[in-house]
């Protein structure tokens, strides 16, 4: 059975789900989860870009006799991107904590002191 381009499309749909989540959800935590979903989608895009059919792990002593290894660069990029996503998620949740402390609510519609 072939998968065709399904992995790419799944990544795209996951990204779209994240965008819809941050556009529709009212709870700040859920919006942060939406951002996390988008970040995961991008990481998965990088990984799927690096896959080669019947490719093996890019570690010599584990890969056996196969000629084809999967591409290593996207994996390295994803490692970096995951750490960056972790850092921003941590900061975003801290800011949400402070918002709850100041505003007493997690509803995004009540953050309206700055306008005009």
């Amino acid at each position: 059975m072939t998968v065709g381009n399904m992995p790419f499309l799944v990544v795209g749909i996951l990204f779209l789900m994240g965008v819809l989540a941050i556009l529709r959800e009212k709870n700040l935590i859920k919006i942060a989860i939406g951002i996390s979903i988008i970040e995961s989608a991008v990481n998965m895009l990088l990984i799927t870009l690096g896959y080669r059919l019947s490719g093996d792990i890019p570690v010599y002593f584990l890969s056996g006799d196969v000629d084809v290894m999967v591409m290593p660069t996207p994996q390295a990029l994803t490692l970096t991107a995951i750490v960056i996503a972790l850092a921003t998620s941590a900061l975003m949740l801290s800011v949400i904590m402070l918002i709850y402390k100041h505003y007493g609510t997690l509803n995004v519609d009540e953050l309206r002191r700055l306008r005009g």
């Binding site: 990204f15 951002i35 988008i38 921003t88 975003m92 800011v95 918002i99 505003y103 002191r113 700055l114």
Partner: peptide, 23 residues
């Protein structure tokens, strides 16, 4: 409170933009 609010709005938009750059 306004400073936290500004930071949160900036973060929300900017993270989406950064992810688009990465895509």
């Amino acid at each position: 409170p306004q400073a936290i609010e500004a930071s949160f709005k900036y973060m929300l938009l900017s993270q989406l933009a950064a992810m688009l750059v990465l895509v």
